[in-house]
Design a binder for these strands. Structure first.
Lengths: 337, 337
DNA sequence: CTTGGCACTCGGGAACAGCGAGTGCCAGGG
DNA sequence: CCCTGGCACTCGCTGTTCCCGAGTGCCAAG
């Protein structure tokens, strides 16, 4: 039913369509790829492929265009990820190596990815919930106000000003700091609630109200603040790609954190590439676009995800290569810092 | 030469063109505004206005369209800022009041402004150089690594991991922290270099290498890091405005921090509105757009700027009203927190 | 099963005409 | 001196028509 030659035809159609952006006809196929058969034969195969929903005609008597289903087959069985060139690898390395803090790593990554793929890049900040506490700092601002700073092993820093129920001196601050760090150091963020459950009981009575306030702030705003930060870059590339139709919807989707989270969120294994094509996307405004995502992380733990959004008609092998490579390099940088 | 009636005609042209987005002719003007004169008279005035460069014809025998010079005159002399409605004010207030830290204030502000004006909003983070040190924190991570955290009076937190030349114990960390805070507390960031110039000399010899390292990091990366962070939102509104021409250039400009800085940078007085129209913009990609900016700050110090980017054909009075109002509210929020 | 041939379809571009909004100019009137 | 109505003119826009050619589906022969 779908013999090898039909698959070869489908592959050729996808490749030609991606590079020319025009419906591809049987004759052009026979010319540009040496499939060893005549246009007429190709036509028969194309009819079969259309029958099964892999390709379709925009208008009667125009060439064929791959459907989402066709791209899916192409990605799953007909293509292989194209590795980057040496020059590209070196460029990535030097570009990312210059970053000095987490913010800059993420910013540089997202720009790099956008430039590399000439599409829209999306990067999620390393997830709080999957990282561990490296340090908790309490900074007195005035008698009844302190700043809580939580530092994670991924270099992320969350801070928050807290109003205290009692005035508090420097020595008590130091004590609380020591206690908090003793219980939380190295603790996975998702385990924080368990660890601190009985903390107030183990403190002197006078410390309890303050400690309770601080803990509730830590829990509510630092740990349970699931909303991961997501940034994107390369929106200008959208305008260059010709699909002006729906551009507005795509831009809107990009500014909706919720949509981005759903795009990135449904996670596969670390460094597995996820490709979501056209109507497979979870948001109607993103039909007509495909998303290539990968997880990244230090060591073997996936901390967050990143990806590239572009027209369904994109060069999947190249895009997938770029996404995979960048994900790996970011992982290395994070592990090393 | 430019008598009152001609100005009235110009005003009418701008208003009509803004609301209809079509070149406006003499007859339509006479109908929709009661200028008390006939179309023929208006035609004469329009000829004069065109002669002086305030309006122009896209094609022979089409209506007239304001030029940049025409908009400039309109903004300077023919319009007055339109205050927001009560409902809008309340919406701003409640929306901004919910913000918990600086990041969120800025994020909410930029979205609010984009939504309010249906254009692209640009907000600069409160400038480091104009704020003062509230606290310096040194957090030991390991024997030879510490994290430096600088907290400003605007709630901004800058952090950085530092490798030390010597191993250092907790007590020496505490000492350094105390010394640093003693000299820097309340100090304007631009004065930091002066304040710390002779610090190493006043320390014990064993502390000097470490102190020097820390100070150089503070100076280089925290204080002298002039590059202010700038964010934008509402790019989708660009696609809605019909000027698909040049959209790509505009998007590119928005992703260039440098361009944004130049847009915002040339500052007027606090809470003075700055309007830059079309070709007055410092970047070629932004011809065809206008930018309305205002400074904001806590109290009477301008900390940073924010603004709105849209097509030259924008509703200036309304946009200016929104920008001014949001700038004021953000100032209040910052002052209060 | 493949291939060449052939009639058919239809989107898209070129050429063309008519409409109508808008203009500039001019002569007459307050 | 300025305003006004009238009038001829311009020219972009729209709808129509026509033609071309790429591409197809089908069929009969190898």
């Amino acid at each position: 039913m779908v013999d090898d030659r039909k698959l070869a035809v489908l592959r050729a159609i996808v490749e030609d369509y991606v590079s020319t952006n025009e419906p591809v006809g049987s004759k052009a196929l026979a010319d540009r790829h040496n499939l060893g058969v005549s246009p007429a034969t190709i036509r028969n195969d194309m009819a079969a492929l259309e029958e099964q929903g892999y390709i379709q005609q925009p208008h009667t008597s125009a060439g064929r265009v791959p459907t989402d289903k066709g791209y899916r087959l192409f990605v799953d069985r007909l293509s292989q990820v194209k590795p980057l060139t040496g020059a590209e690898r070196r460029a990535i390395e030097t570009f990312l190596a210059g970053a000095i803090d987490l913010d800059e790593i993420v910013t540089r990554t997202v720009r790099l990815l956008a430039q590399l793929t000439r599409q829209v890049a999306v990067v999620q900040y390393p997830s709080l919930t999957r990282s561990t506490v490296r340090h908790v700092e309490i900074v007195p601002l005035s008698e009844r106000r302190v700043m809580l700073v939580l530092i994670t092993n991924t270099g992320r820093v969350e801070q928050r000003v807290v109003e205290l129920p009692d005035a508090i001196g420097d020595d008590r601050v130091a004590h609380l700091r020591a206690v908090l760090n003793a219980s939380l150091d190295g603790c996975g963020l998702s385990n924080v609630p368990d660890r601190v459950a009985d903390l107030p009981d183990r403190l002197a009575a006078e410390d309890r109200p303050v400690a309770a306030t601080l803990l509730s702030v830590i829990l509510e705003s630092l740990v349970e603040r699931h909303e991961e930060k997501i940034v994107f870059a390369g929106a200008a590339n959208l305008a260059a790609a010709d699909f002006s139709v729906g551009l507005r919807d795509v831009l809107e989707a990009l500014e909706e954190q919720v949509v981005l989270m759903r795009l990135l969120g449904e996670t596969g294994d670390l460094s597995e590439l996820t490709v979501r094509i056209g109507s497979e996307n979870p948001y109607t405004g993103l039909r007509g676009t495909s998303f290539v995502a990968a997880g990244y992380g230090a060591g073997d733990k996936e901390l967050a995800r990143l990806g590239v959004l572009g027209p369904t008609r994109m060069d999947y092998p190249v895009t997938m290569g770029a996404v995979r490579a960048v994900a790996r390099y970011v992982g290395q940088i994070l592990a090393g810092s």
